[in-house]
Amino acid sequence: MHRPPPGEYRTVSTAGEPFRAFVPAALPPLPPIDWNPALRRRFDDALVALGRLDAVSTLLPNAALVLYSFIRKEAVLSSQIEGTQSSLADLLLYEIDEQPGVPVEDAQEVSRYVAALEHGLARLRGGFPLSLRLIGEMHAVLLDHPQGRGKTPGEFRRSQVWIGGTRPGNAVFVPPPADAVADCLGDLERFLNDVPESTPPLIKAALAHVQFETIHPFLDGNGRIGRLLIVLQLVHDGLLREPLLYPSLFFKKHRPLYYELLNAVRLQGDWERWLDYFAEGVEQSATQAVATAKQLLALVDQDRDRIATLGRSATSALAVLQALQRQPVTSAAALVKATGLALATVNRMLVQLVDAGIVSELTQRQRDRIFSYRAYVDALNAEL
Score class of each variant (00 low, 15 high):
R348E: 13
E155P: 11
R255T: 07
D355E: 15
F173R: 08
E197K: 15
L321W: 11
Y373I: 10
T287G: 01
R241M: 11
P196W: 14
A38D: 05
V290G: 01
P61E: 08
N193K: 13
Q325N: 10
S159C: 13
L257I: 05
G16N: 02
D378F: 02
I81H: 09
Q211I: 09
V210F: 10
A182G: 15
H209M: 07
S313W: 12
T199K: 13
V48E: 07
G101L: 06
V76L: 06
V329P: 02
D301K: 07
D194K: 15
N193T: 15
A116E: 12
A382N: 03
S331D: 06
E272G: 06
F128I: 01
L244G: 05
S316F: 03
H2K: 10
R123L: 10
T292H: 01
S13Q: 06
A46W: 02
L324P: 04
E118K: 14
A286T: 01
N381I: 06
A38L: 07
Q284D: 04
G223M: 03
P5T: 12
L384H: 07
A140Y: 08
A314N: 12
L50V: 09
P146A: 12
R227A: 10
L262E: 02
A356V: 12
I215N: 09
A182M: 15
A264H: 04
L262S: 05
E189Y: 14
W271I: 00
S248A: 08
Y9G: 09
A75N: 12
L77N: 08
I215P: 07
N170A: 12
L310D: 11
Q80A: 10
V56F: 05
G223N: 05
G223C: 04
W274I: 01
G226Q: 09
V110D: 14
M138F: 07
P200E: 15
G154R: 14
A171C: 13
V114W: 11
S87P: 03
V354S: 14
A314W: 13
W162F: 15
I71G: 05
L65P: 01
A356F: 14
L185N: 15
H236I: 00
R112F: 11
Q322I: 07
R40I: 09
A180P: 13
A46E: 02
M349P: 04
L124G: 06
G136I: 01
S285C: 00
E109P: 06
P29H: 03
E17H: 01
P217R: 10
G340A: 01
